[in-house]
């Protein structure tokens, strides 16, 4: 017998006491999925929790986003930035005009090339107010996963209508992308570790600087 058949056989033998064949009827789950968490001001909470992780958060009207991007990149001392192919044209133009040297990922940059680039600028899929989390579904305005990982600074723009109250609402919004096979990256603040004496240190392998613009 091959391993698959043997393991499934062991599982079936182990579960001889289970007589109801329908999992849902056998074990009811008293939980209402996808519920919002009540909060007074979802956007204010998102800003508060994201800043709590030592990320920089700037609120801006949608029309001011290109200018804010250029300012934040300059403030972080960024000289080179990689931009995903689907990034908003106005953002792209503002970055190029600010004197930052812009690179595209077509053809795909090597890991070593990405390692020499200061920053990446992307859009996002969902923001979660309760936890200060930004989720990327790696659509064309966010690029493949390596782009938002190797450069040391990540500037991400979250639209107000993308911000939900809590994890449950976020999972409900993201489920179709998962079903379509899209990878997801959930980001809560810059890279961090608590592995030495449980004292939190920001900045290990992922981007050490996370800049967030909330576009309203």
């Amino acid at each position: 017998m091959n391993a698959r058949e043997e393991i499934l056989g062991r599982v079936r033998t182990a579960l001889a006491d289970v007589t109801e064949l329908d999992p849902v009827a056998d074990v009811p789950v008293a939980w209402e999925y996808g519920r919002a968490t009540a909060m007074a001001d979802v956007l204010a909470r998102f800003v508060e929790t994201t800043e709590d992780y030592k990320a920089t958060v700037v609120r801006a009207p949608a029309g001011d986003v290109p200018a804010r991007i250029a300012e934040l990149l300059a403030g972080a001392g960024v000289a080179t930035a990689v931009l995903p192919s689907g990034l908003d044209d106005a953002w792209r133009a503002a970055i190029a005009a600010s004197g930052v040297s812009v690179l595209d990922d077509e053809p795909q940059l090597s890991r070593a090339e990405l390692d020499r680039i200061d920053a990446v600028v992307t859009a996002s899929a969902v923001g979660i107010a309760e936890t200060g989390t930004i989720v990327l579904d790696h659509a064309a305005d966010q690029g493949r996963r390596a782009l938002t990982l190797v450069p040391d600074t990540h500037l991400v723009v979250v639209r107000a209508d993308q911000v939900v109250s809590d994890v449950a609402e976020a999972v409900a919004r993201l489920a179709p992308a998962v079903t379509d096979g899209a990878p997801l990256t959930w980001i809560s603040g810059p890279s961090a570790t608590s592995d030495i004496e449980l004292s939190r240190v920001e900045g290990v392998h992922g981007p050490r600087t996370l800049l967030v613009i909330l576009s309203e």
């Binding site: 979660i128 936890t131 200060g132 990878p183 997801l184 959930w186 980001i187 809560s188």
Partner: peptide, 10 residues
């Protein structure tokens, strides 16, 4: 409230 990174891939 949330760990810094969660990856999902299919």
């Amino acid at each position: 409230r949330m760990n810094p990174y969660t990856s999902m891939w299919t």
